[in-house]
């Protein structure tokens, strides 16, 4: 399953809930969700621990818009909107953690 997270981990618990409940698959961080994938953020270790269970992606245009394009932590892949579409197509189902 593809899990889409669009919230900053410092503001809401969407990513935390996703990591707690979801059993695996892929996580795509979009909108304010991309802050979770940046080096030095408070949720970095939490997300790093999850890399063994999930493939983690972040939407590059959202990172760039926020001036964080060069801060992506190791182990997280970036995709553009076309990559977002591919992730949706590749996974049997998806869920947005609103």
């Amino acid at each position: 399953m593809l899990h889409i997270v669009n919230k900053s981990p410092a503001e809401r618990n969407a990513l935390e809930s996703c990591l707690r409940v979801a059993q695996g698959g892929a996580i795509l961080l979009i909108e304010d969700g991309v802050y979770a994938a940046t080096r030095g953020n408070a949720a970095e270790n939490h997300l790093r621990d999850a890399l063994s269970r999930f493939k983690v992606y972040a939407l590059a245009p959202d990172l760039e818009a926020r001036g964080m394009g060069d801060r992506v932590m190791e182990g997280v892949a970036t995709v553009d909107y076309g990559g977002f579409v591919d992730l949706v197509a590749e996974h049997k189902n998806c869920q947005s953690w609103l």
Binding site: N6, I30, E31, P61, G82, V85
Partner: peptide
């Protein structure tokens, strides 16, 4: 909220890919 922007860009990309 960015939701409508994200959805629009997602739809455009999906159409470009032939979906």
């Amino acid at each position: 909220h960015q939701a409508s922007d994200s959805a629009y860009l997602f739809c455009k990309a999906a159409l470009e890919k032939g979906h």
